[in-house]
């Protein structure tokens, strides 16, 4: 086993986040086709959001599959999935910040009645959840596998 993270942790994070991203990826994709299903947050209607979420889901699920096969590389998928998920979440935060400037500083017409909650998107929430996947694996690269003199 590589890097001191238990295969069970990898399997659980891979499964939980993989399915969450999958569900919201489907929801976002459906919303582009005009079928709004709201699971806690309202979908964006942007096909690329659906695409990005499904891709991240595939990364996590591949991690789950590798972990089930006892492949040491499983951790790489959880690690990368978490980084991609968090990056997307950070993007959502930046967009929220930009909208806040529009609403509170510039008082733009298009942003009358805007509230930060309007910008809480599926990928923002999932990005925060990805943090939970990242923390256990973040130091894997600092642990030696083998030491040669």
């Amino acid at each position: 086993m590589k890097g001191g993270v238990s295969p069970k942790t990898l399997k659980i994070t891979g499964a939980v986040l993989g399915f969450l991203y999958l569900i919201y990826g489907i929801v976002e994709t459906l919303s582009w086709f005009g079928r709004d299903v709201s699971l806690g947050v309202s979908p964006t209607g942007d096909i690329f959001v659906g695409f990005a979420l499904l891709t991240i889901s595939a990364v996590y699920l591949t991690g789950l599959k590798r972990a089930a096969e006892k492949d040491g590389r499983a951790v790489a998928y959880i690690y990368t999935g978490a980084i991609l998920g968090m990056a997307l979440g950070a993007l959502a935060l930046l967009v929220m910040g930009a909208d806040a400037i529009e609403a509170y500083l510039l008082h733009s017409e298009d942003f009358i009645g805007w509230s930060p909650l309007d910008d809480v998107t599926s990928y923002l929430v999932l990005g925060v959840l990805s943090l939970a996947a990242y923390l256990p694996v973040k130091d894997v690269s600092k642990e030696p596998l083998k030491v040669k003199a």
Binding site: V59, V75, A76, Y77, Y79, T80, V140, S141, L145
Partner: peptide, 21 residues
């Protein structure tokens, strides 16, 4: 001195250069 590690570059590459992903 030389230790063998799975660097974070290697972990990212495992996924980012994946055939389907």
């Amino acid at each position: 001195e030389r230790e063998e590690r799975m660097t974070f570059s290697e972990m990212l590459d495992e996924v980012l250069t994946h055939k389907y992903l």
